[in-house]
């Protein structure tokens, strides 16, 4: 007799715990406003990323197609993965002085671990992280990017003022 009582007790106790859990799921079933799921590909137009989000490295250019990078290569030295490659060229100014100038700023997105050291050490604040996060491509070559725009030049101190 005792074993029957224990069996029934276990049975109904078990059903009660299952119903307790069902209460929670049932609550959200009848309260659809509390559901927090974002319909991602559909809401791409209204999706706002938080401004500090580290998506990919970019080099901001102003309206005259000028950037701030002086090709000092500090970011290249500080990068732990060899993600950044700064290629510089020697140019001569009008008064005959030799000057180092940025030729190509290569950024290999596939190797980047987003540690943020390059942005932190840059003395000119020439690079920053953008919020772009859709990096998927079909071709691996497309992950190697050139950050300075074609025909861009260094923002001189006179124009900055």
């Amino acid at each position: 007799m005792n074993s029957i009582i224990k069996y029934l007790k276990d049975l109904f106790g078990g059903i009660k715990t299952l119903l307790t859990g069902m209460m929670v799921t049932g609550y959200y079933f009848v309260h659809p406003k509390e559901i927090v799921t974002q319909q991602y590909p559909e809401n791409r137009k209204t999706l706002v990323m938080l401004d500090r989000f580290k998506g990919e490295l970019v080099m901001p250019h102003d309206e005259n197609n000028q950037h701030k990078c002086t090709a000092c290569s500090i970011c290249e030295i500080n990068c732990p993965n060899g993600t950044i490659e700064v290629i510089s060229k020697q140019t001569e100014t009008e008064d005959g002085k030799k000057k180092k100038e940025l030729d190509t700023y290569i950024y290999k997105l596939g190797m980047c671990t987003f540690c943020g050291l390059c942005v932190k050490v840059c003395p000119q604040d020439a690079i920053e992280f953008s919020n772009e996060f859709e990096h998927a491509v079909f071709d691996k070559e497309k992950l190697t990017k050139t950050l300075n725009h074609p025909g861009s030049s260094l923002k001189s101190k006179q124009t900055a003022q």
């Binding site: 938080l50 500090r52 989000f53 580290k54 987003f114 943020g116």
Partner: peptide, 15 residues
């Protein structure tokens, strides 16, 4: 993760 993203810039690995 949203709190992390806003302050640190990373969601999983904050750096």
């Amino acid at each position: 993760l949203d709190i992390f993203e806003e302050t640190t810039g990373g969601r999983l690995l904050q750096s």
